[in-house]
Amino acid sequence: MTSVLIVDDQVLIRAGLAALVRAAPGLEVAGEAATGEEAVELAARCRPDVVLMDIRLPGMSGIAALERILAEAAEPRPRVVMLTVFDLDQYVYAALRSGASGFLLKDTPPERLLAAVGLIAEGEMLFAPSVTRRLVEAFAPRTEPPAPADPARLAALTARETDVLHLVGHGLTNGEIAARLVVSVATVKTHLNRVMAKLGLASRAQAVVLAYESGLVRPGGDAPSPAGA
């Protein structure tokens, strides 16, 4: 059973999402919160598998709550999905950069929202990798990183792990990466999990952001042939 924490300051939206989750087989509502502060408290207490959270909350923002939830959570950390009105939005970029596993538009049809929760619980992306790439390319050049990229951070990766991160940054799916590297999808997942563990990343989307901000991937560039091929 996948537990879902629902966070939205609008009562009707929150109640609607809760009713939708309760009616879906395999899902249960871990709790409901109206503010970022409540979300942080409930996430620590209930330990949900997935958090559906409005990106713009009064008081503590959804992004600030996301960072607190991930920083304070025990492993396995919950996967946080941000709810937003606009897809190409700098708030969304900031959320992905902070570790959100993805985002959903508030007008997403119920059946697609439930399918998305299932996908995110399994560690998949909610949307085509090309959407993440388009979002990162739109905002990465305008967003000043908090500190210069640390080459030593990427130096912790093996050559094949660097290949995988590079291709993830270019928006390739696990299947496409497997075909490019001539390995199995399971092997790609293993390499990606190691990359995320070594770099302290909470989501695949965050790996895409890091690939751009570290200079490993350049906006507009094509995916190169991997060094290890």
Rank of each mutant, 00 (worst) to 15 (best):
L57E: 02
L57S: 04
P58L: 04
P58Q: 06
G59N: 12
G59D: 05
S61D: 14
S61N: 12
G62S: 06
G62M: 09
G62E: 02
A64P: 02
A64W: 00
A65L: 05
A65S: 13
A65H: 09
A65F: 02
A65E: 01
L66H: 03
L66V: 08
E67G: 03
E67I: 03
E67C: 08
E67T: 14
E67F: 04
I69R: 01
I69G: 03
L70A: 03
E72N: 10
E72F: 06
A73C: 08
A73K: 07
A74S: 15
A74R: 15
E75M: 11
V80N: 04
V81D: 01
M82P: 05
L83V: 04
T84E: 11
F86N: 14
D87M: 11
L88R: 15
L88G: 09
L88D: 15
D89W: 06
D89P: 08
Q90R: 15
Q90I: 13
Q90D: 14
Y91W: 11
V92H: 06
Y93C: 03
A94Y: 04
A94M: 03
A95H: 05
R97Y: 01
S98V: 07
G99D: 08
G99V: 01
G99A: 09
A100F: 07
A100E: 06
G102C: 07
G102T: 05
L105M: 11
L105T: 13
L105R: 11
K106V: 08
K106W: 08
D107E: 09
T108P: 05
P109T: 12
P109G: 04
P109M: 09
P109I: 04
P110S: 09
P110I: 06
P110T: 04
E111Y: 09
R112N: 12
R112I: 04
L113I: 02
L114V: 13
A115F: 05
A115V: 08
A116W: 00
V117S: 04
V117C: 04
V117A: 01
G118D: 05
L119C: 10
L119D: 14
I120H: 08
A121K: 07
E122L: 03
G123L: 03
M125K: 00
M125V: 12
L126C: 07
L126I: 02
A128K: 15
A128F: 05
